[in-house]
Amino acid sequence: MNFQLLLRRRGIVDHAVLKAMDEVPREDFVEPITRDDAYADVALPIACGQTISQPFVVAYMTEQLQLRRYHRVLEIGTGSGYQAAVLSHLAAEVVTVERYRTLADRARLRLRRLARDNVEVLTADGFDLPDELGLFDRVMVTAAMEEVPESLKERLTKDGVLLAPVGPDGGVQVLMRIRRRAPDSAADSASQGFATEELLEVRFVPALKGIARQL
C-alpha cells in the first residue's frame, strides 16, 4: 500500500505532515535486518533495546503538535533520529536529546547525511536539561513517563504545546497534550497555567533518568 494512503486511512489529514513523512527515507533509520519492514505500520527494534515508533504514531504525534515553520521544538528521546527528521521538515529548529551515546551518535550521522541542518542532537538527561537550552514552542516526549515533570512543562513558551505518553512502564500509556495558557492580560499572570487533554492510548519504552553509562 502507498505510504501516504496508509497514513490517510489511519486518519492523518495534515498535508504538511504527510509530505514530511513522505520525504524522510524511513529505511535509513531502521536496522539493516528490518529494512524490508521499514514502511510497515509497526514499531521496530533499534540499538540499545529501544524502538522506532510505527509510522502512524510518528505522524499522529507530529500532527497533534500543530507545528508552524517558526517553531523551536524539543524532542526527548532521539532514538534512531527518525522523528527528529520528520519534525525538521516542519519547524525552524529541532533540539533532540538522547541518553544513549550510541543512539545519539548514529542519529547525528544520519541527519547530517540527509542535510537536516536545523537539528541538534545532544547526549543528555531528558529529566535534567541544561538551563541554556532555553524555552521551546513545542516539546515532544517519545518515551513513557509516569508523570510529566514540572521542569519540562516550564520549558514551554506561552501557548506552547507538550506531547508525552503518560502511564506505567510496561503497560498502556495515554498520549497527553499539555498546552501552556497565556495570562488573560499582562496584569493577570496568576491565570497562566496548563491545560491537559487525553488523546490516544499508546505503548512506549520507559523514559529513564540520567545518561546511560554504557552504549
Rank of each mutant, 00 (worst) to 15 (best):
Q173C: 08
V174G: 01
A104E: 02
V172F: 05
R110G: 06
K158P: 00
I52A: 05
G77F: 02
V161T: 13
R101N: 08
R108K: 14
Y39F: 14
G167Y: 00
T123P: 05
D128M: 09
M145V: 15
F136P: 00
V95I: 11
C48W: 05
A91W: 00
E147N: 07
R106P: 02
L109E: 15
L133I: 03
V58M: 07
Y82S: 08
P165H: 09
M140T: 11
D105T: 13
V97D: 01
G77S: 07
E93K: 14
R113F: 08
D105K: 10
L103D: 04
R99S: 11
L114F: 12
D36E: 14
A92E: 15
D36A: 13
E93S: 09
Q83H: 11
L162C: 03
D131V: 08
R116E: 15
Q50F: 06
V121T: 08
R116Q: 15
V95R: 05
S80V: 01
M145C: 14
D128R: 14
D159T: 04
S80H: 07
T78R: 01
L135N: 04
L90F: 05
D36W: 12
L111S: 03
A85S: 09
D37R: 15
T123M: 11
F127P: 04
A104V: 10
T62I: 06
D128Y: 04
P45F: 09
G81E: 01
A104G: 09
P130K: 09
D137C: 05
F127Q: 07
M61L: 07
V97M: 09
R106W: 03
V95T: 14
V166C: 04
D117K: 10
V121Y: 00
P55T: 13
A144Y: 01
Q83W: 05
M176L: 08
S151T: 14
V57N: 10
Y82W: 06
A91E: 01
